[in-house]
Design a protein around this nucleic acid. Structure first.
Length: 888
RNA sequence: GGGCGCGUAGCUCAGCGGGAGAGCACCACGUUGACAUCGUGGGGGUCACAGGUUCGAUCCCUGUCGCGCCCACCA
């Protein structure tokens, strides 16, 4: 016999192990089965499970379990990402805190990488174990890591392929430079943050001493690298100065005043300093005007040897302070305005990004984007919800070259080798590069490999096919690529989704997935993105410990509606834990009532109305769940099974069958027991994708007194029912009973009928069925609503209030009504409201346009509604009349 | 500056042109042989505001206000 609650803490690990041992997580080996594949967005190998992971993987697991039960050969490809900067950052911090205050350079590349691998080995299992805690049924036997040999080979193949196709090149230009990590980063890794800053006005004297111009800048320290001053050609204030020279303060260099349409007369003073090596716009202007480049920063944004001696070695902000002081002293600082401005920050380091001139590798993203755009335009890949396509298009249509090299050590080393003369050989291996060099030089030359590694997202972008063995033609690749659905958050549409589309199409000629499901972000209470660096993370594991994985999963699935961020409420998780308990106790009830399974049971054979009704309802609910999941409407699917389980099966069915189970009709009793057990089984199956643990446990435990289960629930086929199991007649009859009981209950409560007292009921209805139904359901109705009834008017107690229920009437002993005045007020209010409702409906039904244009079923519905409302009003009116009789 | 989204019950949110919903919270009653992690009943909403389209608008369109996010080279 079951206990009164499900002990999730004890059961979850055991059940998970049983699933894994059964082989359920691996795709079934049936060539006839339709393949279904989801690629996990690989979490950082050294990361921990946060709420975003919990949501993301819950949704994937719901789909995967659903499709597996539907008989498909399901592969949920799992693995982790090496997460270049993030991981290197963690290990560097460990080093720095290790007592010796070591930097990675102190260790050297080889030793440092050993440490990173050691850290990966040590902490890499954590995220996997946490996914297991969540119940994720991914195929661990195929777990991959972006720096596995196979995936690394794919990276090299793609790099060489892009290079040979002319889609990848080395270029010297300004990049976003992170002075903390001392590496280039891509545009996407830059966060523009609004900060309070200043704009200073600085006088630059004309070289001939005949005057000065005032430039405005937010970055005075870069003036040491100024190569010109710019004005708009039509700006009358400065027209006469164009072509003349100014003497750069503190430096003494003479630089020209140039004119360019780019300069905005309305901004600042209309006169701007040009620093081509330290500003993206100035770089372009400088190139147009042949100004050259003067780099004044080193890799840590300290002033270098190109700055005047007094400033060399200073940090950029220290230099700023000193420069402002010196300008002030010389009387050249002409003002400071406080203002808000956006400043670029490294998304990992948090420091201000410096535009810096370096050699980097770039991918020609614009060319690759064309197919990625077309594939979504033609519907080869669709986004759900669809509006994300706009975001995707917008970004791809304005895409800039993708800087893929990073001056880090942790990652895929760039497969490019340099000869002493600087010529480059991009190849799959050193040997291949050497062969290339030999062909070029006619002799062996010493080659040095590029020191840099690739952007983490370069390898992530290959994930859908590299994990399947590409570039080798593996059976898995042929079977599961392109994949079915990608489930991810909108925050990585650019980082990841777009890159997979571009690289997938380029190298496989196929879209990597046919559907992209974009879910909301789980945010903190202020609507901010949860992230480890902000420290505002809610720990899903703590919720799992407290309420069980099922409760957390169900919460997330039911909140995965489109269009709103998720702010997680703890009480909601608790509510769904209670749902699990409710289900558990329903199962306990069936056990106590010997509702054992019967192998030969056929739901088509049931005779009792209440049983035909629940079969019909179960079919309807299961279909709603299927439809919801097919449409990726997780909240609707979850809602459908929740409502059926609690609101229909527990609240009504189990209550209505109690009289049968306690009665003498053995045939009805046997049928009801079997139906109750069968229906519960349907609930377990349909609920399983959402709440795998409690359903699996019950699936096992419920066979204690019946036939043994053939297999674990996770391996059960998803229920599909014929339409013949739908019974509208039974549905309408039980619906009548439910409404009668609800009505009586409500009346009892409102009229303060004492709990023990029974309500005399008088039937005077025109519906000849009413009496029969009442007779038929007497036991149930009496039990649930506690009423007595009579079928003739003469038996009604004298002085009773008559309240109509549909065609029947209920007579109540008025003596039990405590406050006639307040009851009267209430009824009058109700009476008026109903009159208004009736007016509205009648007006609608009298409107010829409505009758002409509205669909037939809508008109019929309104007629029904009118009749219902009128009947209710008559009932209330009668009650009012009786009140008058009594009190008057 | 451009784009996306959101404003529905005290709170967290569903609602996909035709009678305003759920969970929690609140109030009352209930310990009835599955379940107090429960049951029954109840109170509570000009669906942000203003126009428009429609026979009919919480839902579609436009505008306004408030909030959030993304993108962007605003000296």
């Amino acid at each position: 016999m079951l206990d009164t609650t499900f002990d999730h803490a004890k059961a979850e690990a055991r059940l998970y192990e049983a699933w894994e041992r059964s082989g359920a997580f691996r795709p079934k080996d049936d060539p006839a089965a339709e393949p279904y594949c989801i690629m996990i967005p690989p979490p950082n190998v050294t990361g921990t499970l946060h709420m975003g992971h919990a949501l993301n993987n819950t949704l994937q697991d719901v789909l995967v379990r659903f499709e597996r039960m539907r008989g498909k050969a399901v592969l949920w490809q799992v693995g982790t990402d090496h997460a270049g900067i993030a991981t290197q950052m963690v290990v560097e911090r460990q080093l720095a805190q290790g007592g010796m205050n070591l930097s990675r350079r102190d260790l050297g590349r080889e030793e440092f990488l050993k440490r990173v691998w050691a850290w990966k080995e040590q902490s890499g299992g954590q995220i996997s174990n946490q996914l297991r805690r969540l119940g994720a049924s991914c195929d661990w036997s195929r777990e991959r890591f972006t720096m596995d040999e196979g995936l690394s080979a794919a990276v090299r193949t793609v790099f060489v392929g892009l290079y040979n196709a002319g889609l990848l090149y080395r270029d010297k230009r300004l990049v976003n430079w992170d002075p903390h990590f001392e590496t280039a980063i891509s545009d996407l890794e830059v966060e523009n943050i609004e900060v309070q800053g200043s704009m200073w006005r600085i006088a630059y004297p004309l070289a001939d001493g005949s005057g000065e111009v005032i430039v405005a800048t937010t970055r005075p320290e870069t003036m040491l690298g100024d190569l010109a001053v710019g004005v708009h050609p039509k700006d009358e204030r400065y027209a006469h100065l164009v072509g003349r020279m100014v003497r750069l303060p503190l430096v003494g260099r003479e630089i020209p005043i140039i004119a360019d349409e780019y300069f905005d007369p309305d901004k600042g003073t209309g006169c701007v300093k040009i620093t081509p090596a330290h500003d993206f716009n100035d770089f372009k202007v400088g190139r147009r005007h042949g100004l050259g480049l003067l780099n004044i920063f080193d890799s840590r944004a300290r002033l270098n040897e190109h700055a005047p001696a007094a400033y060399r070695g200073l940090d950029r902000y220290a230099a700023r302070t000193r420069i402002l002081a010196e300008l002030e002293a010389q009387g050249l600082l002409r003002g400071e305005d406080r203002q808000t401005m956006t400043q670029p920050h490294g998304d990992r380091s948090g420091v201000v990004i410096e535009p810096w001139l370096t050699d980097q590798w770039y991918v020609d993203a614009q060319t690759l984007a064309a197919r990625a755009i077309a594939a979504v335009e033609t519907g080869d890949t669709i986004f759900v919800p669809k509006n994300w396509e706009k975001t995707y298009f917008e970004w791809l249509r304005n895409i800039e070259p993708w800087c893929v090299s990073r001056q880090l050590w942790w990652g895929h080393r760039i497969p490019a080798w340099y000869a002493p003369d600087g010529s480059v050989f991009v190849a799959h291996s050193l040997a291949e590069a050497q062969a290339g060099a030999r062909a070029k030089f006619g002799a062996d030359v010493a080659l040095v490999q590029d020191e840099d590694v690739l952007d983490t997202w370069f390898s992530s972008g290959l994930w859908p096919f590299s994990t399947l063995g590409w570039p080798q033609e593996t059976p898995e690749y042929h079977r599961f690529y392109p994949t079915s659905v990608l489930v991810t958050g909108f925050d990585i549409i650019f980082f990841w989704v777009a890159r997979m589309m571009m690289l997938g199409l380029q190298f496989t000629d196929k879209v990597p997935f046919s559907t992209v499901y974009i879910h909301a972000l789980v945010r903190d209470e202020r609507g901010q993105k949860m992230s480890k660096s902000k420290g505002n993370v809610i720990d899903p594991l703590e919720l799992i410990d407290a309420y069980g994985a099922d409760a957390l999963r169900f919460t997330l699935a039911s909140m995965a509606a489109q269009g709103r961020d998720i702010k997680l409420a703890r009480q909601r998780v608790e509510g769904y834990r209670n749902f699990g308990t409710k289900l558990w106790n329903a199962a306990r009830f069936t056990q106590m009532n010997e509702c054992t399974l019967w192998d030969a049971f056929d739901p088509a054979d049931v005779k009792e109305t209440v049983n035909r009704w629940i079969v019909s309802e179960a079919v309807t609910a299961a279909r709603a769940v299927s439809a919801g999941l097919e449409a990726l409407r997780f909240n609707e699917a979850a809602g459908a099974i929740y409502d059926f389980t609690w609101g229909v099966y527990c609240d009504w069915y189990l209550e209505l069958i109690k009289p049968i189970l306690n009665g003498d009709d053995e045939a009805a009793k046997a049928e009801t027991r079997r139906t109750a057990a069968w229906t519960l089984d349907q609930i377990l199956k349909v609920l399983h994708p959402f709440m795998p643990f409690v359903t699996e446990e019950l699936w096992g435990r419920l066979s204690e007194f019946g036939p043994a289960r053939k297999r674990l629930l996770i391996n059960e086929p998803w229920p599909v029912y014929p339409d013949s199991l739908l019974h509208p007649d039974a549905a309408s009859e039980i619906d009548w009973v439910i409404r009668l009981i609800s009505e009586v209950r409500s009346t009892r409560a409102e009229m303060n009928v004492p709990a023990g007292a029974k309500i005399p009921l008088l039937l005077v209805g025109a519906d000849p069925e009413s009496g029969l139904r009442l007779e038929r359901y007497q036991a149930e109705i009496d039990r649930l609503a506690r009423l007595e009834y009579s079928t003739t008017a003469s038996e009604a107690p004298p002085g009773a209030v008559v309240i109509a229920f549909e065609a029947a009437s209920i007579a109540l002993p008025i003596a039990d009504v405590i406050d006639i005045a307040s009851e009267r007020t209430r009824l009058e209010k109700e009476y008026k409201r109903l009159a208004a409702d009736i007016g509205k409906i009648e007006a609608k039904l009298a409107n010829p346009e409505f009758l002409k244009r509205a669909p037939e079923e809508v008109v019929a519905e309104q007629h029904e509604r009118l009749a219902d409302t009128q009947a209710t009003r008559a009932k209330v009116g009668a009650a009012l009349a009786r009140l008058d009789t009594i009190s008057g």
